[in-house]
Lab assay of single mutants.
Amino acid sequence: VTLFVALYDYEARTEDDLSAHKGEKFQILNSSEGDWWEARSLTTGETGYIPSNYVAPV
């Protein structure tokens, strides 16, 4: 399991995006899409895309 933590708040801009709150942890499901990674929030269980530069490894 690849875990990352949000460094900043991010507000989803499309229905495919996933909002993130600073300190929230995510499981990365797919990081092969360049700057946008598919992730699952460990807080809400929701999945979507987050900007890779907004997260760091735990």
Rank of each mutant, 00 (worst) to 15 (best):
residue 4 F to S: 04
residue 33 E to S: 14
residue 38 E to P: 06
residue 31 S to Q: 13
residue 35 D to I: 10
residue 38 E to N: 07
residue 9 D to T: 04
residue 51 P to T: 02
residue 12 A to R: 08
residue 49 Y to A: 04
residue 19 S to E: 05
residue 32 S to L: 12
residue 4 F to E: 03
residue 57 P to H: 05
residue 32 S to T: 12
residue 48 G to C: 06
residue 14 T to Y: 15
residue 11 E to H: 10
residue 5 V to E: 12
residue 9 D to M: 04
residue 48 G to S: 00
residue 13 R to P: 08
residue 15 E to P: 14
residue 58 V to F: 09
residue 7 L to S: 01
residue 47 T to H: 07
residue 10 Y to S: 01
residue 58 V to D: 08
residue 37 W to I: 08
residue 50 I to C: 05
residue 50 I to A: 01
residue 3 L to C: 15
residue 30 N to M: 07
residue 54 Y to F: 12
residue 6 A to N: 02
residue 7 L to E: 05
residue 5 V to T: 04
residue 16 D to P: 03
residue 46 E to G: 07
residue 27 Q to W: 14
residue 22 K to F: 07
residue 25 K to Y: 15
residue 40 R to G: 01
residue 1 V to Q: 13
residue 55 V to Y: 02
residue 51 P to Y: 08
residue 13 R to F: 08
residue 31 S to C: 15
residue 22 K to Y: 05
residue 44 T to P: 01
residue 26 F to Y: 04
residue 18 L to N: 01
residue 11 E to Y: 09
residue 7 L to N: 02
residue 2 T to N: 12
residue 13 R to I: 10
residue 39 A to W: 04
residue 9 D to K: 03
residue 34 G to K: 13
residue 44 T to L: 01
residue 26 F to A: 00
residue 21 H to V: 13
residue 32 S to P: 10
residue 56 A to Y: 09
residue 10 Y to C: 03
residue 58 V to E: 09
residue 53 N to K: 13
residue 17 D to L: 08
residue 16 D to V: 13
residue 13 R to K: 12
residue 6 A to P: 05
residue 48 G to P: 00
residue 8 Y to P: 00
residue 26 F to T: 01
residue 27 Q to C: 14
residue 26 F to E: 01
residue 32 S to M: 12
residue 51 P to R: 07
residue 43 T to V: 11
residue 5 V to H: 05
residue 15 E to Y: 09
residue 32 S to F: 10
residue 20 A to V: 15
residue 47 T to Y: 07
residue 50 I to T: 02
residue 16 D to F: 15
residue 39 A to T: 00
residue 5 V to A: 04
residue 45 G to W: 06
residue 16 D to N: 14
residue 26 F to Q: 02
residue 32 S to N: 11
residue 8 Y to H: 08
residue 12 A to H: 03
residue 35 D to Q: 09
residue 51 P to E: 03
residue 25 K to T: 12
residue 15 E to S: 13
residue 30 N to S: 10
residue 57 P to F: 06
residue 57 P to R: 07
residue 43 T to G: 06
residue 12 A to T: 04
residue 27 Q to R: 08
residue 11 E to V: 13
residue 2 T to P: 14
residue 1 V to F: 13
residue 43 T to H: 10
residue 36 W to N: 06
residue 44 T to C: 02
residue 45 G to Q: 05
residue 14 T to K: 12
residue 40 R to A: 04
residue 14 T to R: 14
residue 46 E to K: 15
residue 16 D to L: 14
residue 38 E to C: 15
residue 36 W to P: 04
residue 14 T to E: 08
residue 36 W to Q: 07
residue 41 S to Q: 02
residue 1 V to L: 13
residue 56 A to V: 13
residue 13 R to D: 07
residue 57 P to I: 08
residue 2 T to S: 11
residue 50 I to P: 01
residue 25 K to M: 15
residue 26 F to D: 00
residue 39 A to L: 08
residue 17 D to A: 13
residue 20 A to P: 02
residue 12 A to Y: 02
residue 39 A to P: 00
residue 11 E to C: 13
residue 19 S to I: 04
residue 50 I to V: 06
residue 9 D to V: 04
residue 33 E to C: 15
residue 51 P to Q: 06
residue 6 A to T: 05
residue 54 Y to P: 01
residue 21 H to K: 15
residue 39 A to Q: 00
residue 57 P to A: 09
residue 49 Y to T: 06
residue 11 E to A: 09
residue 38 E to H: 14
residue 52 S to W: 10
residue 2 T to L: 13
residue 7 L to F: 03
residue 21 H to M: 11
residue 43 T to K: 10
residue 12 A to G: 10
residue 37 W to N: 01
residue 5 V to W: 07
residue 2 T to W: 11
residue 20 A to C: 14
residue 2 T to Q: 13
residue 44 T to S: 10
residue 19 S to M: 06
residue 40 R to Y: 08
residue 45 G to R: 03
residue 30 N to V: 08
residue 47 T to D: 02
residue 46 E to L: 14
residue 26 F to G: 00
residue 7 L to I: 11
residue 24 E to V: 03
residue 18 L to D: 00
residue 29 L to I: 11
residue 54 Y to Q: 08
residue 43 T to A: 11
residue 11 E to S: 08
residue 54 Y to D: 02
residue 6 A to S: 05
residue 55 V to S: 00
residue 24 E to T: 01
residue 15 E to D: 12
residue 46 E to V: 09
residue 41 S to M: 03
residue 34 G to F: 08
residue 45 G to S: 05
